[in-house]
Structures are given as C-alpha cells and as structure tokens.
Design a protein around this nucleic acid. Structure first.
Lengths: 151, 151
DNA sequence: GCATAGATTTATAATAGGTCTAAATTTTAT
DNA sequence: ATAAAATTTAGACCTATTATAAATCTATGC
C-alpha cells in the first residue's frame, strides 16, 4: 500500500520506478518531518545494506528536478527534503534544529511584490521563520533560573 | 572614511574593533552583493597575507551574533553575508547564482500567520524568490533557438 | 532465449566549506 | 613591566556532497 503510493508518486512525476527510488520515496512519504540525505541513507542501509550514498543523492536530485520533492535550506548544518510540495512556510528552531510546517495563508501565492528584477521568471518562493520553539524557549528560561539559583 | 564607518558599525553593535574585524566589516560595507566567507578571505589575503581563514569565520560569527550582519542560506553551494540587516527579501537566480535584494513591502513585518507553533518566539523571517534572472532567461531562450537551428 | 546497448547503481576517491585546537601574538589591567 | 585575558594564526580535521569508473541491471531487437 505504501509502496503503491511511492509508485504512484514516481510515475506521476515521470520518474521510472526502481527499487531504490521507491525506497527513497517511501521513506519520504512515511517521514514527513524533513529528513536529510544522511538519515535516508542510514535508514535504507539497514534494510538493504548494498544501498549506496551516491544513489541517495542521485535519487534526491532526480526527485527534486522532477518536482516530486522540495529541498529545504534552512539549517546551516543540514539540507532537508520534503514531499509536501504545495507552497507552505517553515518555522525553524535554531536551538534544537527541528523544522515545523507552517500554513502560510496566501502570503506565498501573492503575486511577487514590487522590486523583483524586471523580466525575471520566479519559479518558487520560500518563507521561513526562525526562532525558538516552545520547548526550547521553556528550557532556556528554566536554565537561566537555575543559573541564578546556583551560580 | 570607510574604516570610519566600519568602526562605527562595530561599536554600534558592541563589538571591540580590531584590525581584522574592521577589515571584514569594511569589505562587507563596500561589497553589498552578498559575499561569501571565502570571497572575503581571498580579498583580505591580498592586503594582509597573514589573515587567517579561521579569523574570517570567527569574525563573521561574531558579527552575526551581534546583529551586525545577516547570514543568507539560499544557494546550496554558498553561505552569503549581508550588512543590510533591515528586513528585505531576496531573489536568487539558480542559473548564475546571483542574489538580488528585493523590497518586500510589509510582507516581512506581518504578524506571523496562523500555524506557527503555539508559544514559540520568532526572531527573524526570511522570504526568498527563486528562478531565472532576466539575463539567464534571455540566454536560455537564445540557446534553445540555437539548438533548434543546429541540432 | 540471448546479445547488446543504455540506464542505473555501487564503491570509493576527491573536493569543498567549515570547525577545532593549540601555539603565538596582541591587548588590557594592575 | 608583568601577568592575565582576548584575539589571531596555521594547519589538522571533519562532514556533506560530488565525481568517477566499474559493476549490475533492464529493455529491446533478433
């Protein structure tokens, strides 16, 4: 059933389905919390130890070129991937590094604001919020109290 | 006069001005087209060959932590820096890699749209457009014509 | 069914951007 | 002038990603 939808996703984007591509797509469909190439590679290695890192990168590039996946450059430490390709924003916690989806209303479908280079072709828009997530914010406040208490 | 404003910029952000920091800040003030750490390092090496890569990275981190500079993660190949810290958007051409400033109107000062994690603290917002700049768009169209003419 | 060409995957080497460390130098305070 | 603290330096190191070339798989014509 899952492999079925991986299959559908690949075919829908004109990508020839191979075992490896189905596995990568399947992983992305099951793990929608923006995995990295390395997370995918590690997970796949457990299942089929002959999977190669190069294949993961090749496949992710292929998926991205064909619009089956979106690349997210938010965290300087990581490049993340998302099968959720409809326009949406992200909230990035620079403490724990987690990346949350955010509904962006129509902000992202706004016709490009003035100031874009004259005659350019806009292909995508990304909107990212950065800050501290509730958990890290709470932890930080707790820590600063503790520091006051035990200097 | 330029070193004067580098000086002012550092002091304004509570950063102790050293020769190296003044040089990095000076470079950023003169080159507002989003240089990378490596570009800064190369340029500085020419002037003072004992400048170290580590110093460039240390200095850029320091400047960023103190809000004197903004880090831009748009191009998977590069991390760029910008002294233009007031909220503004960017247009990134994925062909030539150039990064243009874009006036974003009040989009960026919008109170965060619904859907942000409850109780989180937003510290910054970034809005990026991707696509082809006028030059690359024209070149691409010219190329495809050429291909048609001489297969 | 088999040979062959083309596509895909694999393993590994190479590259590049960035970080870490420890020593050297400079600055600051006394 | 001296000692402590901060900063810079050089270079080793790390990690993510890309490149390369061989091996394997797939599809197709015979």
């Amino acid at each position: 059933m899952l492999s079925q939808s991986s299959y559908a996703a690949l075919v829908a984007h004109g990508i020839k389905p191979t075992v490896q591509r189905l596995a990568v797509m399947g992983y992305l469909l099951e793990h929608r919390c923006h995995p990295t190439a390395d997370e995918i590679y590690t997970a796949m290695s457990r299942v089929l130890p002959t999977f190669s890192k190069a294949t993961v990168y090749n496949t992710l590039s292929l998926l991205e070129e064909n619009g089956a996946v979106v690349r997210i450059l938010v965290d300087e430490r990581r490049t993340c991937y998302d099968v959720h390709t409809a326009p949406h924003a992200h909230f990035y916690c620079h403490q724990c590094g987690r990346l949350h989806d955010v509904q962006a209303g129509d902000t992202l479908s706004l016709p490009a604001v003035g100031g874009l280079p004259e005659g350019s072709r806009v292909e995508s828009v990304s909107l990212t919020y950065r800050g501290l997530c509730p958990e890290c914010l709470a932890r930080q406040q707790a820590d600063s109290h503790a520091t006051f208490a035990n200097p």
